[in-house]
Structures are given as structure tokens and as C-alpha cells.
Amino acid sequence: MTELPAELRPPLVELLLSAADDKFILGHRNADWTGLAPILEEDIAFSSLAQDDLAHAAALYDFICGLTGDNANRLAYGRRPAEYRCAALVELADEFDWAVAIARQFLCDHFEMLRLGRLARSAYPPLAELARRMLAEERLSLGHADQWVIRLGRAADDAPARMQAALDRLAPLAVELFEPTAGMDALESAGVYPHDAPSMYDLWEASVRNIVQEAGLRIDLRPPPPDFRGGRSGKRSPLFADLLAELTEVYRVEPEAAW
């Protein structure tokens, strides 16, 4: 497939917006830890990985603009809340609970590896190429999250209990990552977003459980419900308006400004 069929363009934009928005909002949430992470080294590492998330979001927004002729800054900062396509998990405020931040990153990264893996096998070559580059960096982020889950799970004192509480709290939200975007079936059958076998959910569940068990912790994951909360179709949690107001504070001063 050298040219993307016109009818696949809107569903692909939806799918890539969901990926970009997940990364953009998660990167923003994680960047909140700059200066506040538990140890200096981790502060720099976590901030630096948050920049990777933002860089991936920027690359995806650019790619979308190549399909639609839109402007990446407007996509990132100029949409109404209902136009964002991120999952509820990335909107979650961690309230500076390190275990929650790590659990959120961990569950998202395992999902992201699979999503990028599918995109990297896309029948649409420019998309596959972009996804392969992102996948290489995503492995670093995943390794970081896995290390922390295992470390906190096996640590002394209250760390395992706090990590367990975070996993318990986030597990029901995490399956919301799997909500399909509009028109995903068409992308799947055309090979633009090829299926995983076994299913993406089964692969995710197994890889998450594998690390959680290594950490000596538990996670109660249930297959995605038929009725999602609707993050992928623009239903936002009450937290989102505040988050977006903060995120777009500078942009809104002068939307047309060149940076």
C-alpha cells in the first residue's frame, strides 16, 4: 500500500490521535514530577523519559497533520476537551504518590509497546517506519517502569503495600486503554493496524502479570467491558478541564505565535 485509501484516512486519524493524546497527557503528568521525584537521579531520568513521551506525541501530531493538513500546535493545544482521544488512565492525577505514577507509566508502557508493535507492522509504510523508530525508544521507557515496579514490590518497609494499592486502584482504569477508536475495524482488516495473535489484550495481560508476579505483587485484570467510559470518543473525566487549562495556559496567550 503506497497510498492510503481515502476512506481509511478518518479512522487512521482517530487511531493516531488516541496514541498521540495518550503520550501527550501522560508526558505532561509525568513532567509534573520534575524536581520532586524520590531521588535526584530518578528525577532527571523520569523528566527525560517524559520528554520522550512528548517527542512521540509531537511526531504523531506531525504525522496526522501530513494526512489532514492541520497544524501540530493547534492539535496539541487548540482542541476542546471533547476532541481529545486519550484514555482515562493518563488523565489520572497521581497526587505525587510515586507508586501511582509508576503504576500508571507501567500499565501504559506495556500497552504502548503492543500498539506501536502493531503500527510497526502496518501495511502503510510511512506509518510503519515512524512506529519502528518510536518502538526502539519505548523499550527504554518500559524497562524503566518494569524496574521500578519490581524494585518497589520487593523493597522493605511500606513500598510493596503502596505499590499494591496503586495497582489495585489503576487496574480497572487500565483496561480503558483498549477502547477501540472510531473505524478501527476498517484499519484492522486493511492491515493498516494489523491484529495481534493472540489478542492484544491477552498479550498485554500476560506481560503485565509477568512483571507484577516478579515483583511479588498481584493484579486483578478483567477483560475490557463492552461499555467503555468513552475516553477514545471524547468523554472526559472531570479532571481533564483543569489539566487542559494548565497545559494550554501559554498557548492561549497568543495562539498564532511562532515559537
Partner: peptide, 17 residues
């Protein structure tokens, strides 16, 4: 230099720093 709990974490920090 970096401070880390073990080799794996040290390498991760070093790569990011």
C-alpha cells in the same frame, strides 16, 4: 557519576543523564 541501587539502575540513570 550517579548513585543507584544496583548495576541495572545505574545504567538506566547513566543513559538518561
Amino acid at each position: 557519576s550517579v548513585d543507584a541501587a544496583d548495576d541495572e539502575m545505574a545504567l538506566l540513570f547513566a543513559r538518561e543523564h
